[in-house]
Amino acid sequence: MQISKILNNNVVITEKDQAEVVAMGRGLAFGKKIGDDIAVDKIEKCYTLQGDESSRIDELLAGIPDEIFVITDKVITLAKEKIPGKINDSLFLSLADHINATQLRASDGFVIKNFLLWDIKRFFPTEFSIGKKAVADIAKKFDLPHLLDTDDEAGFIAMHIVNSELGRGNSSASELTKLMEEMLTIVKYSLKVAINEEDIFFQRFVTHLKFFSERVLLDDGTTLPNSDDSLFEMIVERFPESYETTLKIVGFLNKTRGYQVSKDEQTYLTIHLARIVPQTT
């Protein structure tokens, strides 16, 4: 592996399997120049770049201090631990750029309001908790205690993580949040109950709704097969009120997005809704 770009003494760009890679390691580029071989035993972390990211390396990473790369790597490492198998390496570039811009704005006394914060907190609590830890690290490293006065920045970092989870297509955290809010509104008005959002059954429903919403947003035109008609019919008969709400969601998705909700998906939605009702009446 040879150095193609040097970002600082600890971060370089190289190539592996015909893809550009951000390689990190203490003193990795010390005394080195472009074209020199990398000491593989010094590489501590690698992030593989995809698509048009390679052409944006200079634009996104130019002038970013090493401390930002360290914090970014720490955030991604924690995210991969908490959300295994879903975090894309492309998060490194966008998150490093975002965190650097955040600390520059905060140094000048500016903090941007996050208008999706309330939804982010309730829909993506794991990602939000990671964002909180990241903000604490930024505030400590750059002596910006006022960053801790609000949760806005933690929400923005959480959105970057959610975007990485989506992984492909043009879907984004804001789209996912909007879709989940739309379906929750249908649920609340249809069931006509005061939902306790701290209840474990509601939290499980939100988790299911998140994954279901991801499938809707990433829809490639195919529909999940209907595997068990007998189970579907039993659930419909047993929980008619909840199934009526499911049908409203089905109609909404078909009308607004052309998404065909399979019987399996209807079954799982109905079961989750049925668990909410007795806990909120």
Rank of each mutant, 00 (worst) to 15 (best):
K192S: 15
D151I: 01
Y47H: 07
A39E: 10
I43P: 01
Y243M: 13
G131M: 06
N196P: 05
T72D: 08
Q203S: 03
F239M: 08
L217M: 02
F30A: 15
Q203T: 00
G31Y: 10
K141A: 13
F110K: 05
L60S: 15
L61T: 01
F123Q: 08
E241Y: 10
K45R: 15
S190F: 13
N8D: 15
Q279H: 15
L147Q: 05
E241R: 14
G51D: 12
E127Y: 02
T246D: 04
A29S: 09
I99D: 13
L147E: 00
K178M: 14
D137K: 14
F201D: 09
K113H: 08
V162T: 11
L93Q: 11
A29K: 04
Q279L: 11
E59M: 11
K32V: 03
R122K: 13
I120Y: 08
D151P: 05
E15D: 05
K82L: 02
Q260I: 13
K188W: 08
A106H: 03
N226C: 09
F124D: 04
E198K: 14
N114W: 05
V261H: 01
V236M: 07
I87G: 00
L217Y: 00
D137W: 13
C46V: 15
I87H: 01
T177N: 12
F30E: 14
R257E: 11
F124C: 03
Q50L: 14
K121N: 08
D17I: 02
R56I: 10
P65R: 10
L61W: 02
Q18T: 09
I87V: 05
W118S: 04
L231T: 15
Y189W: 07
L191S: 06
F202R: 01
H146A: 12
F128D: 00
G251Q: 11
L148E: 08
E165V: 07
T150F: 05
F69D: 02
F205V: 09
Q103S: 11
D199G: 04
S213V: 02
N226H: 02
